[in-house]
Amino acid sequence: MPDQPTRRALLSAVGAAAAAHALPAKATPAEPDTLLAQLSGPLPEEAAKLLPGMRDGIRQAGVARSRYPLPDASEPCFVFVPTAVKLR
């Protein structure tokens, strides 16, 4: 993995190259649904009806969690090991 400045430079170069080859706006095909594009095909009817609610559930979980105080940026990410406590 390149270090941070190198990676940014690479991304910038990729972005510039992409922009140079970009098609005119009117020729851009309609953007596919990013989730559906990851699936192998259409979902069965009943599941397809439930999908918007499930996607909304994922979004709402994100909204709900953002209402809680966010950890301090300097806090290391959690690696889960159960904590032993001393009983009375």
């Binding site: 989730l35 439930l50 499930m54």
Partner: peptide, 10 residues
């Protein structure tokens, strides 16, 4: 089916 599909967007 819907729930696993949607979970890709977490």
């Amino acid at each position: 089916v819907a729930g696993f599909a949607a979970s890709l967007e977490t």
